[in-house]
Amino acid sequence: MNDLIKYGPALAEGFLENVKLSVMCGVLSLILGTVLVSMRVSPTPVLRAAGTLYVNIVRNTPLTLVLAFSALGLSDTLGLTLSQTPSTNSFWLVVLGLSIYTASFVCEALRSGINTVPLGQAEAARAIGLTFLQSLRLIILPQAFRTVIAPLGSVIIAMIKNTTVAVAGGYLAESAFVMKDTFDDTGASIPIFLGLAVAFMAFTLPIGFLTGWLGRRLAVAR
């Protein structure tokens, strides 16, 4: 227990980094996932193919490889710099990598939602003169989102837990050092592990409950 008190502040700071990471990735992967699913259901074959290719490649690649690619491939080899400060730069590279990865799961969750929207909804939308993008944005996606809020919650929870992979992989230098130091010093004591596990649960459990509740509340009556 003493360990927890002693290393608490440093761990809390590292944990806060994960929270920041989660919020950024959550927003970005929802946006990117929506763009991807729009491509996958679009009437343009090239866009459909590109969306399918993206999802199948990214979803089937281990997260560690995606993160390694965004850190090493994008940054070191291709010279992509998102910030002049090295630690900020690596933070954004992780955001990018994790969002690229999570977006493929968001896309597939949304696509299963779109499949539950009756074809007649899209036909009626087209019949009053809405364009494809308007039908998608005003009619199809709002209904699809409502049916997959709970599964989307699961995707986001998985993403939050995946932020630790970024930390453990050393892509988020600051947090990684804190964690490594702490584990080294304390011999990775049980209270430290429990403390971290509880912190994550305090973060993810409400998301599960909230999305479950919202999903039921916003269900579209047919």
Partner: peptide, 14 residues
């Protein structure tokens, strides 16, 4: 410019 009324109504459910 061409209205359409379907057998299954297809009102926007949301």
């Amino acid at each position: 410019e061409v209205g359409m009324v379907f057998q299954s109504f297809n009102l926007f459910a949301h």
